[in-house]
Amino acid sequence: MDPFVVLVLCLSCLLLLSIWRQSSGRGKLPPGPTPLPVIGNILQIDIKDVSKSLTNLSKIYGPVFTLYFGLERMVVLHGYEVVKEALIDLGEEFSGRGHFPLAERANRGFGIVFSNGKRWKEIRRFSLMTLRNFGMGKRSIEDRVQEEARCLVEELRKTKASPCDPTFILGCAPCNVICSIIFQKRFDYKDQQFLNLMEKLNENIRIVSTPWIQICNNFPTIIDYFPGTHNKLLKNLAFMESDILEKVKEHQESMDINNPRDFIDCFLIKMEKEKQNQQSEFTIENLVITAADLLGAGTETTSTTLRYALLLLLKHPEVTAKVQEEIERVIGRNRSPCMQDRGHMPYTDAVVHEVQRYIDLIPTSLPHAVTCDVKFRNYLIPKGTTILTSLTSVLHDNKEFPNPEMFDPRHFLDEGGNFKKSNYFMPFSAGKRICVGEGLARMELFLFLTFILQNFNLKSLIDPKDLDTTPVVNGFASVPPFYQLCFIPV
C-alpha cells in the first residue's frame, strides 16, 4: 500500500478516535471549553503556568470542569470545598494515580508514587510505618536530621561569610537525610558517588519541569519514536535504579534480621516474612523503585522550600529577627534545636507554614484518578478519569488567608500570638494520596531553619526591599529566582 495512503488512514483513525473520546459521556461530565481534535484544549493552557490557566477557566466554568490534554480527559478541581469533598470525603474513590506514560515506562507500575490498587496500598502502608518507626538502627529519624543539620551548619561556616548561592548546600542536606534513612549512610558533600546522585536528581527535576515532558505524557507515541530530553530522564532513572540495586545486594549479604539498620533492611525482612506468599507485593523490584521514589520526592521539594525560605527571610528581616528572638528565648545557644521545641515556638512554626503556603511549591499536585465511576456534584466521572487538583486555589484562598499574595506569618497566628491551624494548609496535597514523607519534610524544615538561624545572621547583597521573591514557574514547580547571601556567624 502507498505510504501516503497509510499515513492518511492513520491520521484519520487518530482523528476519529479523538472525536469519539471527547464526545463520549460529555453530557455527564462537568462543563469545559470545547476541545480541538487530537490536541484537545492545549492551546487554551499556558504550559509554563498551568495553575494560572486553571484559575482563569474556573471563573468561566465553575469549581469543577473538564479539560482535554491531547486525548487525555481530565476533570479539574478548583477551590477548597471541591478539593476537600473529593480528596477527603470521597478519598477512596479519588485515590488513584493519574496516567503518566513516562513514569509507567520507567517504574513499570512498581513503587509508591505511580503505583495503584493493592500494590500501592500495601507499599504505602509499609513505608509510612517504617518512616514513623523511630527505632531503626537504634537511631531515631530526628537524630538523623539533627546530625545532618549540624553538618549543614559546618558547611555554611566554610563560606566564611562571603557571598554564596545556597542551592547546592541546601540540596545536599535533605538528600543526605533520605540516604541515611534508606542506606544507613550519609555522605560527605564532596563524595563523588553522592555528587553523581545529586546531579541525576537535579537533572531529572529540570527535565520533568519542561513543556516537552508534558507533551510526551499527552502524546506517548513520542516516547519511542522521537529524540528528546525524555530519553535522558529514562537513562538517569535507570542509572539510579541500578545503583540502588547494588546497595540492596550489599544489604542482603550483611543484614541482621533482628537489628534492621535502615529502610532497605526493613523491606528485606518483610520480604523474608512473605516469601511463601506468591501474591506478595514485597519484591526486589518494588524495593528498588520505592527507594528511588523516596529519593526523588524527598530531596528537591525540601531543598527548594529551604532555598525559598531563606530568600523570604532576607526580604523580611523583621520576621527573621522575631524567629531568632524566639530561638534565643526557648533554645538558647548551648544546645541543639529539637522537635519538642516546636510546641513552644508558635512564631517560628507560623513562619515555616507561611513559607510553604506562600511559595505554593507544587501548584497542581500530582494528578489523581478516580478508581470507579463516581457521581460528584451531579456529574458522572468515569472510572480512570484523571483528576487535576489546584492546590493554589486552596493555599491562596483570600477568605482563609487575607492578602494571600503577601508573605505574612500572621496567617497562622491567632490574636494572642498562638499558632493557628488551618484546614486550607495543603502543600502536601490531601486525602489518601497525601505525601508519604510529610512528617519528615516538616521535621527537616523546622530543624534546618532553626539550626541555621541559631548559628548565623543572614545578610543580603542588596537592599532587602529590592529582592525579587516572585516565583519562577516552570510548569511543574514554583522555584525561587537566583540569589546570593552571606551567612554571618553569630
Score class of each variant (00 low, 15 high):
5 V>Q: 07
8 V>F: 15
18 S>A: 14
22 Q>F: 09
23 S>I: 09
23 S>T: 13
28 K>I: 15
29 L>Q: 08
30 P>M: 04
31 P>A: 07
33 P>F: 00
34 T>A: 11
34 T>K: 13
41 N>K: 00
43 L>C: 10
49 D>A: 13
53 S>L: 00
67 L>R: 00
67 L>Q: 00
71 L>F: 15
75 V>Q: 00
75 V>R: 00
76 V>M: 02
84 K>L: 06
86 A>V: 04
89 D>E: 15
91 G>W: 05
91 G>M: 06
94 F>W: 02
95 S>M: 08
97 R>T: 03
97 R>E: 04
100 F>A: 15
102 L>A: 05
103 A>V: 12
104 E>V: 12
110 F>G: 11
111 G>L: 02
113 V>D: 03
114 F>M: 13
118 K>Y: 13
121 K>A: 13
124 R>Q: 05
128 L>I: 14
128 L>P: 00
129 M>E: 15
138 K>S: 13
144 R>T: 13
152 L>I: 10
153 V>Q: 03
154 E>T: 10
155 E>K: 05
155 E>A: 12
156 L>W: 03
164 C>P: 01
165 D>S: 05
169 I>W: 10
175 C>A: 13
178 I>L: 12
184 Q>A: 14
184 Q>G: 15
185 K>Y: 05
187 F>A: 07
188 D>T: 10
190 K>Y: 10
191 D>A: 08
192 Q>Y: 09
199 E>L: 12
209 S>M: 13
210 T>A: 09
211 P>M: 11
211 P>F: 11
229 T>G: 10
232 K>N: 07
234 L>T: 07
250 E>H: 08
252 Q>E: 10
254 S>G: 08
254 S>E: 09
255 M>V: 13
259 N>W: 06
259 N>I: 06
269 I>F: 07
273 K>S: 14
274 E>M: 10
294 L>F: 13
294 L>N: 00
295 L>A: 04
304 T>K: 15
306 L>K: 00
309 A>I: 06
312 L>N: 03
313 L>G: 01
320 T>H: 09
327 I>S: 01
328 E>K: 14
342 R>N: 06
344 H>Q: 13
350 A>G: 04
351 V>G: 00
353 H>D: 03
354 E>F: 02
357 R>Y: 00
360 D>I: 03
369 A>M: 14
380 L>F: 15
382 P>R: 06
385 T>V: 04
386 T>P: 07
386 T>N: 08
388 L>D: 00
393 S>P: 03
397 D>N: 07
401 F>E: 02
404 P>V: 06
404 P>R: 04
413 L>E: 02
414 D>L: 05
414 D>W: 05
416 G>N: 15
418 N>T: 09
421 K>L: 12
422 S>Y: 02
426 M>L: 14
434 I>G: 06
435 C>E: 01
438 E>A: 11
440 L>H: 02
444 E>H: 04
444 E>P: 01
446 F>G: 03
449 L>I: 12
456 F>T: 03
457 N>P: 02
464 P>L: 12
471 P>Q: 15
475 G>Q: 09
479 V>E: 15
479 V>R: 14
481 P>A: 08
